[in-house]
């Protein structure tokens, strides 16, 4: 099964001198880790909502939460127990917290497949994090319009891929505290706006925001644009 790991911060996290590089190497070599990338701080995010004809773009994250997503890893594991083992061995299980979400296959038809890539992540500049918005008018994006949005992005080079996630009820949170492994039901942070999927977007900020504002999911939910952290060493 394929799982998305959201690597998140946690003010209650403990300091650790474990090496994230060693974790990447261990699980990439065993073929479990497919890809992953850290994100720049959440304060630099921009948020896009489309309500009716209005496009609302705000600076900053969708909400002020004490925990925030600091990166992602995509893994292919035998089952949840293996995904937990992978997450538990991540230094951020100690320093922060890790949410495990099953990835759901979403077939939007021919010509909508993710752009093939090699290395740690699609060569995109941004990660678009798509969330629900319980306060938004209910609207179910039809697959045809999503497929059209994907094809448009693939043609223009904005869209490099995406992952659709199983509902938040299927999320599992993994932490290490005081040397003890804590496994609990739930997401990395307790807000009603849960993550439904991610998209890899390339281009300049304005181009990426413009593309996200045409995303059908932005009409009923929230799209948060986060820049990947590529110049770390």
């Amino acid at each position: 099964m394929r799982y998305m790991l959201f690597v998140a911060t946690d003010p209650a996290g403990e300091s650790t001198d474990e090496n994230p590089g060693a974790w990447v190497e261990r699980w990439s070599e065993s073929g479990v880790r497919i890809e992953g990338m850290p994100l720049k701080p959440v304060a630099e995010a921009r948020t896009v909502r489309v309500r009716g004809d209005r496009v609302l773009v705000t600076d900053g994250p969708f909400a002020e939460t004490t925990e925030w997503i600091a990166g992602y890893d995509l893994v292919e594991a035998a089952d949840l127990d293996e995904a937990i083992e992978v997450a538990a061995s991540h230094p951020m299980a100690t320093g922060g917290r890790i949410e495990i979400r099953p990835v759901e296959a979403l077939d939007l038809g021919r010509g909508t497949e993710n752009v093939p890539h090699e290395g740690d992540a699609p060569a995109a500049r941004f990660l678009g994090i798509l969330r629900t918005d319980p306060s938004a008018p209910s609207y179910t994006p039809d697959p045809a319009s999503v497929a059209e949005w994907v094809r448009e992005g693939l043609a223009s080079g904005r869209y490099l891929g995406g992952e659709h996630l199983s509902p938040v009820q299927d999320a599992t949170l993994v932490r290490r505290r005081g040397g003890e492994l804590l496994i609990t039901d739930g997401a990395y942070t307790d807000v009603p706006e849960w993550v439904t999927g991610v998209v890899f977007i390339d281009g300049e900020w304005e181009e990426a925001i413009d593309y996200l504002s045409r995303c059908p999911m932005a009409r009923s939910g929230i799209a948060e644009l986060r820049e990947f952290w590529t110049d770390f060493s």
Partner: peptide, 24 residues
């Protein structure tokens, strides 16, 4: 229902955990 759904959707294996995780 919630438990059955998560077992299936999240891939919770049907087994006795391996020795390393068993005590926990």
């Amino acid at each position: 229902l919630r438990a059955k759904r998560k077992i299936a959707a999240a891939g919770i294996p049907y087994r006795v955990p391996p020795p390393g995780a068993r005590a926990e």
